[in-house]
Simulated assay, not measured.
Amino acid sequence: MRFDPWSPEFVAHPYDVYDELRRERPVSFFEPTGQWLVARHADVNALLRDRRLGRSYLHVASHREFGRPDDPEFQDPFWRVIRAGMLDVEPPVHTRLRRLVSKAFTPRMVQALRPKVARMAEELVDVFVEHGGGDLIAEVAEPLPVTVIAEMLGVPEADRHLLRPWSADICGMYELQPSIEAQRTAVRAAEEFSAYLVELARARRADPGDDLISALALVTDEGDTLTEEELVGTCVLLLNAGHEATVNVTGNGWWSLFRNPAELDRLRADHTLLPTAVEELMRWDTPLQMFERWVLEDVSVGGIDIPRGTEVALLFGSANRDPEVFADPGRLDVGRADNPHISFGAGIHFCLGAPLARVELVESFGALLRKAPKMELVNEPTWGPGYVIRGLESLQIRV
Rank of each mutant, 00 (worst) to 15 (best):
E181Y: 13
V312G: 05
D126I: 03
E24A: 12
L356N: 03
M152S: 05
P287Y: 07
L392C: 10
R114H: 06
I306D: 03
D221W: 04
P261E: 03
V399D: 13
V295W: 05
V249Q: 06
E192W: 02
I389R: 12
A168Y: 03
S62M: 11
E292L: 15
L238S: 00
C171T: 13
H341N: 10
P107K: 07
S56F: 14
E24R: 14
Q177V: 10
V11L: 07
P385Q: 12
L136A: 02
R336C: 06
V146H: 00
G347V: 06
A168R: 08
A241P: 06
R202Y: 04
E31F: 05
R205A: 12
R184S: 02
F344E: 03
E280Q: 04
T250P: 03
E279K: 08
A357G: 01
P178D: 06
R266I: 08
E292M: 14
L53E: 06
I137T: 01
A168D: 14
V378K: 11
E175G: 02
I170P: 07
G330L: 09
P26A: 10
D70E: 15
A337Y: 04
N240K: 04
A277G: 10
N248C: 02
R98K: 10
A118M: 01
A245V: 08
A269T: 03
P340Q: 04
D210A: 13
F29C: 09
G67F: 02
V236L: 00
M86G: 11
G347F: 11
R2N: 12
L153H: 03
G34R: 07
P115N: 05
D70R: 14
I82Q: 12
V110N: 10
A195D: 13
L162R: 15
D265G: 08
F30V: 12
V27C: 07
D305A: 15
S256A: 15
P275D: 13
M375D: 04
I304W: 09
A277Q: 05
R160C: 02
A319E: 11
V198Y: 15
L136V: 07
H59K: 12
A84I: 04
G353M: 02
H341R: 08
A61Q: 10
E157R: 07
P287G: 08
L136Y: 02
P107V: 03
L288Y: 10
V219H: 02
S343Q: 06
